[in-house]
Structure formats: structure tokens, C-alpha cells
Design a protein around this nucleic acid. Sequence first.
DNA 1: TATTGTTATACTCTATAACTATA
DNA 2: TATAGTTATAGAGTATAACAATA
Lengths: 152, 152
Amino acid sequence: MSETRVRNAAAEDALDAQIGYNLRRASALALNDFSVEMAETSLRPVTYAMLALIDERPGVRAAELCRLLGMKSANMAPLLGELEERGLIARDDHAEDKRVQELNLTESAKAAMPAWRRKVRRHEERFLQRLSRNERATLLRLLRLIWVDEAE
Amino acid sequence: MSETRVRNAAAEDALDAQIGYNLRRASALALNDFSVEMAETSLRPVTYAMLALIDERPGVRAAELCRLLGMKSANMAPLLGELEERGLIARDDHAEDKRVQELNLTESAKAAMPAWRRKVRRHEERFLQRLSRNERATLLRLLRLIWVDEAE
DNA sequence: TATTGTTATACTCTATAACTATA
DNA sequence: TATAGTTATAGAGTATAACAATA
């Protein structure tokens, strides 16, 4: 059996050589590490992402948040309810279009956000410790080539 | 406001600059594309990964398969049952240790595997179309730096 | 005592469909 | 008709705990 074959599969077809599989494993590890670092905040990756984006785009519409995060509004609704109940966001009525909700962080969430961002930075530092600064920049660029829509 | 800031967050802390977030988005896109390509085979990423590894390591123990795929045996058990019912794998008794199951592909699965691997290659080709050959190799290396245990 | 494998169960994420209100 | 948002529900992935059989 040649070196270019992994048992029964050509090396290029081996599971370990598949980028999709390695994306899933790396993502699972990152998810896990995130929940360890953020446990005390009761924020999950999705809820943190929502807060971070609302922080970066005050007044963003719920539908726009769905689009930006690649979520269905049916799945977003209960999460917005959760964040509102916890006093982290406000759903404000749009002036002209009564269908629209404008999302904003509460003062309490605004105050907490810098510390949460620092925690996330520590989490990234930990699960990326084997990558150099340059490698991290490269990885970021390549990941965005995969999923970011060219049209945007 | 300086160019180095994304609204309220320093650029390095912006959601879009987080590798964990981008891993999750890229992985979700890959998952989605996988299920489109593999729909007619009724194989999901997990079940395909199990078959591919059993193909690459005939006779692998169930516990070893769990370890290699990062799964809990409690979650593996029903999937092995599914694959056995579909006539794709056999769970053979170990000669010396009666607790152990040795996993093998059936003849029918062995015959189908090359076509399934080709379909997965097409899927990878599609969701990675914006990455060059070199970039794909780099991405693979960086992803494995994140999740593959140094001890192995 | 530890390991292999199973069952039961709960939680999160995601997908679809049906719905209300508004444009 | 189309869009914004909600509710209900089902499927898949993953986590823990309790268990039986074997080492």
C-alpha cells in the first residue's frame, strides 16, 4: 500500500484531510472553551453575538440582526425575549414602521460589555495559543472567504 | 471615532474579528452544503465520519471510534444501531475481551464508499471554491493546530 | 475498581409552518 | 402581496447519570 493512501482511502479523501470535518472539530473546541470562559455570565455564543452586534450597531432592526447572524427570526424571537427579561436589551418601536423593532443595549449591558469583550479575548487567546499572530490573521481571512457573501 | 474602532468596540474585539465566531459561521455553511450534496445518501456528517473512519481502520473498537471522533459513547450507540440496521456496518465480537465491539463495513458499504468519498470531494470543492490549493492546505494546517491534541 | 457499551433524559441549535399586524 | 415578528413543533447534536456485563 502506497504512502499516498490511508488504508482504504486515497490520502486526499481521508477524513482527517477534509476541511469540513476539521472545521467542525475546531468549532466544537472553540464552543466548548467559550462556555467555560463565559459560564459565569450566562451568555452563550449566540446570545453574546447578538449583544456584541447590537453594541456595534445601536438601533439595529431585529430582521437585520437575523440577516447579519444568519439566523431565522423564529429562533431569534425567544432569545431576544430572554435578553430583554434579563434587562440587557430594549426593544424600541420604530418611529415610522410599526412592524419594526429597534434593538438597543440597556445601560447595564453597556456597562458590562467591555468586561465581556475582555473575557472573549481571553478565550480566543487560549484556544488559539498554538497559532502565531500572523497565522491568526490568515485563518480569519480564509474563514471569511468561505462564508462571507461576496455581494455584501 | 477612530478607524481602529467598530462603533463601540475596539476593532480587535469586534464580533467579525473573532475567530470563534467565524469558525462557527464557516462550519455552519459547510454543514449545510454537506447535507445538500449528501441528501440522497441519507448520510449526515457524523454518520459519514463514522463510516469513513471504520473504512480507514477496519476492526476499530467502538470506544476508539468515540475517542477519534470526540463523541460520547452514549451518543455513538444509537448511531451504530442505525448504521447496522441499514446494513452498512457489522458489530463483531472481540476474541479475547467480550466487552469490546469491533466495527467493520459490510460488503455493500465497502462498495458504496468510493462514490460517497467522491461526493464529499465535490462538496468540499464547492464550499472552498474561493480558496486556492495553497490556501486550503494552510487552512487545514491551522485548523488542526487548534483542535488536534499534541499528545497524539 | 475500571472499562465497554446501552438506555433514558434534558438542553441547545436549527428548520418549517401557521399566524398576526402592518406596509 | 410582501415584510416584521411570534408561536408551536420537530429533528439533530451533545451532555449527564444510571445501569449491566466484563476485565
